[in-house]
Design a protein around this nucleic acid. Structure first.
Lengths: 185, 185
DNA sequence: GGCGGTGTCTATCGTTGATAGAAATATTGA
DNA sequence: TCAATATTTCTATCAACGATAGACACCGCC
């Protein structure tokens, strides 16, 4: 079964190359520059090959980038929270840094990809893990931890989105961070 | 100058028809269905006419819908706040109702249209007025009213966006509203 | 070495946003 | 009232998009 193993590996590698190319392209030139032809060029294949890996085409690629983004956030976030004395501060800073440093990936995670539902049976594990990170930061001892986590998440998301669209005063960034943390306690 | 007056009026009317058509179409079938050809059909003209009214083409139309949306929000919000005994509750409910009832317009206001900056010299009056509504709800007596308003706005926007993408638990909607209001005080 | 199956490419479809240049309409002067 | 002019509108088209059918080429197997 050696040949088919190699084929499976090659397919997985190409899958990753597509996702990586999409992510890099999106971060450098925006999602509007991520076209099926451009992606195919990037991996040295022709467009139809994309649809072998992502039957949903361009949307499928965006969704894959979104999932990869959630995985990255969980990895970075849980690493930062391990051994930190103030989990809330860490999660706030990690979240905002992630959104600022990878705006296109963040966009895929929240604005572009619509397929999955949260807080539902079908919610993928990575998404649950991401939300759990925020619940942990709030503290599971609160009986209303879920609601408080949702509100913190919403506030974080709102600040990131409004900042990204230049809707907030840059001079107040530090004050926003402080108030955000204070209100979550 | 009678003929040119009539022409100016007709032009303004057609401008409004385009914006209205875009808005209606977006609310009923989503922004992806709002194409230049479809808009032209809707107003019984051919595509080039659109570019006479909106040199930026489709983006210009979306921006116009966004501006109209802000104007509507200010109108609805200030009417609701006049004579209300709890301005904060009113602004929270008005905001969330607006986002829920006109999701496509809301999308244009915050996700699609990127041209304008807030909290800057060039910020259009309607956008300032919308933000002022939130500052009023916080209360101008606070010395940190601006920051608190920005955070409230962010939380509202975050909740609306995450709800729209089914990222929050529907069962917790009332609890979210209560906590949002409590934290803003 | 030839055969069957998998993988890849060429060529193309319909649609999109956008525009140049032709045609038609309206306005203004005599 | 009618011709000259200015303005408006349409026809025709461009390049690029997402997507796919069918032809071609390659690979592993007997």
């Amino acid at each position: 079964m050696a040949p088919s193993d190699r084929r499976a590996r090659e397919k997985a590698e190409r899958h990753d190359r597509i996702v990586t190319a999409a992510r890099t392209l999106a971060e450098t030139q925006g999602w509007s520059s991520v076209t099926t032809r451009r992606l195919a060029d990037e991996i040295d294949y022709t467009p139809p090959v994309l649809y072998q890996h992502f039957p949903d085409g361009r949307h499928g690629v965006i969704a894959a980038v979104a999932l990869a983004g959630f995985a990255d956030f969980v990895a970075v976030g849980s690493a930062a929270m391990a051994g930190a004395d103030d989990a809330l501060v860490v999660v706030v800073d990690t979240y905002m840094s992630f959104a600022r440093d990878h705006p296109a990936t963040y966009e895929a995670m929240f604005s572009l990809s619509v397929p999955v539902e949260f807080a539902a049976e079908s919610t993928p594990g990575v998404l649950r893990a991401a939300f759990d990170l925020i619940v942990d930061a709030i503290g599971r001892d609160h009986d209303d931890a879920a609601v408080r986590a949702e509100i913190l998440w919403s506030a974080l998301h709102g600040v990131c989105e409004l900042e990204r669209h230049h809707r907030l005063d840059p001079a107040l960034a530090d004050a926003r961070r402080a108030l955000l943390i204070a209100q979550a306690r």
